[in-house]
Computed example of a mutant assay.
Amino acid sequence: MVRRTRAEMEATRASLLATARQELAKHGYADTSMDDLTAQAGLTRGALYHHFGDKKGLLAAVVAQIDDEMDARLQAISDQADDPWQGFRSRCRAYLEMALEPEIQRIVLRDARAVLGGASPDSQRHCLHSMQTLISALIAQGIVAPADARALAALIYGSLAEAAFWIAEGEDAAARMEQAAVGLDLLLRGLRVQPHDDQDC
């Protein structure tokens, strides 16, 4: 029996992920053949089953990889923003704009929802925690009106997620994106602390 090194195992897994990501983006989950995929990667189906269990497990791993990249992109927007409120708005809009990217649209927003039932519980918890942290900071700075940050995070994250699915499923995705952006601005505007008029009416 040939023992493979950890580096070789990691290289095999990375090769399968890269090939699967390419094929899933091009053909979609239903039309991606595991035999064609493993042949293209120069590997066996046994290697695929060893690392991912089955076709569904492979899809979940690809989705997790893309999710991590999306999260890094969104975090960079927050980190680079000079104004915390504009950074938050830009981050929310960027999430919706990602629904226009073919790879994200097909793999994360269509196939993952149809095959896996949507984002994993871990991914959802991470997104909610990130959103809650941002909102808590905005409340502490007096930018967002005082409210339960967890509740606001659940509402905003849920709205963004559903809007992204709505954008991805339509033939007119670009038009839907612009409509969603208008709705997003209205939604976020309601979070801001409103200046009080101290003068008598």
Rank of each mutant, 00 (worst) to 15 (best):
T5E: 00
A7L: 03
E8V: 07
T12C: 07
R13C: 08
R13Y: 06
A14P: 10
A14D: 10
L16N: 04
L17G: 04
A18D: 15
R21Y: 08
R21W: 12
R21P: 10
R21M: 13
E23G: 07
E23S: 08
L24M: 12
H27N: 06
Y29W: 13
T32F: 06
D35Q: 15
D36Q: 07
T38Y: 06
T38K: 03
A39W: 10
Q40R: 13
G42N: 12
L43H: 07
L43W: 07
R45V: 08
R45D: 09
G46F: 09
G46T: 02
L48F: 07
L48R: 10
Y49D: 06
Y49R: 09
F52S: 08
G53T: 04
G53S: 04
G53I: 06
D54R: 09
D54V: 01
D54P: 01
K56L: 14
G57D: 01
L58P: 01
L59G: 01
A60V: 02
V62S: 00
V62P: 05
V62E: 02
I66D: 10
E69W: 10
M70K: 14
A72T: 04
R73N: 11
R73P: 01
R73I: 03
Q75M: 11
A76E: 09
S78N: 09
D79T: 02
Q80F: 01
Q80C: 04
A81P: 09
A81R: 02
D82N: 11
D82Q: 14
G87A: 07
G87C: 08
F88R: 06
F88P: 15
R89K: 13
S90R: 13
C92Y: 00
A94D: 02
Y95R: 15
Y95W: 15
A99W: 02
A99S: 06
E101H: 09
P102D: 01
E103C: 04
I104T: 10
R106K: 00
V108W: 02
L109G: 02
R110C: 02
A112E: 09
L116C: 04
A119L: 09
P121E: 06
P121G: 09
S123D: 14
Q124C: 03
R125I: 01
H126F: 03
H129Y: 13
H129K: 15
Q132T: 11
Q132E: 15
I135A: 05
S136H: 11
A137F: 03
L138E: 05
A140F: 04
Q141E: 14
Q141S: 14
G142C: 13
I143Y: 02
I143F: 01
I143V: 06
A145F: 02
A145C: 06
A147D: 11
D148W: 12
R150W: 05
A151D: 11
A153P: 08
A153H: 10
A154C: 11
L155I: 14
I156A: 04
G158E: 05
G158K: 04
S159W: 13
L160G: 08
A161D: 14
A164S: 13
I167M: 03
A168R: 03
A168G: 11
E169N: 07
G170T: 05
G170P: 03
A173D: 00
A175N: 07
A175I: 01
E178Q: 07
Q179K: 14
Q179G: 15
A181Y: 08
A181S: 15
V182W: 12
D185S: 15
D185T: 14
L188E: 03
L188R: 07
L188A: 08
R189H: 01
G190N: 11
G190E: 03
G190D: 05
G190L: 04
Q194P: 06
H196S: 08
D197R: 11
